[in-house]
């Protein structure tokens, strides 16, 4: 992990330029350009609220606020993991033919994903204010939550990116597992609606402990549960260790196998 940090520090200028480029490319090509960043999540939120709040009738007060507090960080996780898992394959021309450290690609994907998320935060605050959520001092927890999620997603992204070079089905596997994980994370339903005998399913899922603090801070206006924070921290560190070790084991062969 120390080696990884040193590499990132040494290559910070390259990382910065690549992350900028990634963001520009992401928004330049779309028809509505930058506006799409705001329209797309709003449209999705509208449909989710309609389907799960009105059609399925999940009993939560100010349902759109609850929903958005969990959806925005979930989207960050899911999108970034998907992009990270293909990032080494996408950067193959550099990794194969230039002294381009493979560890940079997932970091760039994660930085761009984090910026995407942060751009959505004002929108989230707007929806929360409109729904009358108790926005207050507990919002100060947000930077910590963002940091934990960044480390967690980066760790998984490093592992997925490196594995996808040797095992070409890694990307498909992640695409298949992500929706399963989504339904086992309390994003569209509150944990209170989960019968006791199924609670372990949620508790075993590290995403539960990352998402619930967002809902506490943003929707309930409370400090996050220490239980969740502790487990989220542990999950982030374990994920980063897995990512660093996986990449380290495979790194010497990556330029040859790409």
């Amino acid at each position: 992990m120390i080696g990884l940090a040193g590499e990132y520090l040494e290559r910070r200028r390259l990382v910065w330029v690549l992350a900028q480029r990634e963001l520009i490319a992401r928004y330049r090509g779309t028809a509505l350009g930058f506006l799409w960043t705001f329209l797309h999540p709003l449209l999705l939120l509208l449909v989710y609220s309609l389907v799960f709040g009105t059609f399925v009738r999940i009993e939560v007060e100010h349902y759109p606020a609850f929903l958005f507090a969990g959806l925005l960080p979930w989207w960050w996780f899911a999108k970034t993991l998907a992009v990270s898992s293909t990032s080494l394959l996408a950067d193959a021309p550099w990794i194969r033919q230039a002294a381009f450290p493979a560890s940079i690609s997932p970091l760039v994907a994660n930085l761009a994903g984090a910026v995407d998320f942060l751009l959505g935060v004002p929108l989230l605050i707007g929806v929360l204010a409109w729904q009358g959520a108790p926005l207050g001092v507990h919002l100060l927890w947000l930077p910590l939550l963002v940091l934990l999620q960044f480390v967690f997603t980066l760790g998984l992204g490093l592992a997925a990116g490196a594995l996808s070079v040797r095992f070409r089905d890694t990307v498909q596997l992640i695409q298949a597992l992500t929706p399963i994980l989504f339904f086992l994370t309390p994003v569209i339903y509150p944990p209170s609606q989960v019968p006791a005998r199924f609670e372990w399913l949620l508790e075993l899922n590290p995403l539960t402990h990352l998402i619930r603090p967002y809902q506490a801070v943003l929707y309930e206006g409370q400090a996050p549960a220490l239980w969740d924070l502790g487990l989220a921290t542990a999950a982030a560190l374990v994920a980063l260790a897995i990512g660093a070790v996986t990449l380290d084991r495979l790194r010497d062969r990556i330029p040859e196998e790409l």
């Binding site: 690549l18 021309p93 550099w94």
Partner: peptide, 16 residues
Amino acid sequence: AGFHPELSGRENARIS
């Protein structure tokens, strides 16, 4: 080699 086919020459030169 070392150039990314999808990026412009300008961007590739900078990244190289």
